Simulated scan of single mutants.
Amino acid sequence: MRNRYFITIDDLRHARGPIPALSFDGVGPGELAAAVEEALRTPALFERWRALQPDPDAVDEALGATDPQAEVKAQVVDLHIEMEVTTQLPMQVLRHRLNLLIGTRWRLHDLRPA
């Protein structure tokens, strides 16, 4: 089942993940949308994160799920970023990828079936 997640980021300039090598380093909503979309469509970000773990083989494989059809749109609205993510991935995976890219400086404000 595909869902549409509506996410707000108040300050994109300070929205960075805790691991600099994995963190989003762009400046605009278009770059953010592209980074999130790639993180959901491919295993690259997950694999780089997993390689940094003390026991990579112990990492839950479910966190590595991908959705080649994931779509992400982001735009500036009233001085913050509104992002819409459409994917079949569960919230657990989306949360993990967003936290790697932009830390905890985001909030989910709506969820709807796509």
Rank of each mutant, 00 (worst) to 15 (best):
A65S: 06
V77P: 02
E84F: 04
G64N: 01
D67Y: 14
L94P: 09
L100P: 00
Q88P: 00
D78T: 10
T87I: 06
Q92A: 13
Q92S: 12
E71C: 12
L94G: 05
Q92W: 07
D78K: 11
W106E: 08
H96L: 13
V76C: 06
L100G: 01
M91H: 06
G103S: 12
A74I: 02
T87Q: 05
Q75S: 14
Q88L: 03
V93H: 07
H96C: 08
Q88K: 05
T87M: 05
P90R: 09
L98E: 08
I102P: 00
V85C: 07
L79H: 09
E84N: 04
Q75P: 00
A70T: 04
Q69G: 02
I81V: 15
H80P: 00
T66S: 11
G64H: 03
L89C: 13
L79M: 07
A70M: 03
K73E: 10
V77R: 15
E71W: 14
M83N: 04
Q88H: 01
V76Q: 08
R95P: 02
M83P: 08
P90M: 07
T87F: 06
I102C: 02
I102N: 00
A74Y: 03
Q75R: 15
N99R: 12
V93T: 12
A65V: 01
E71N: 10
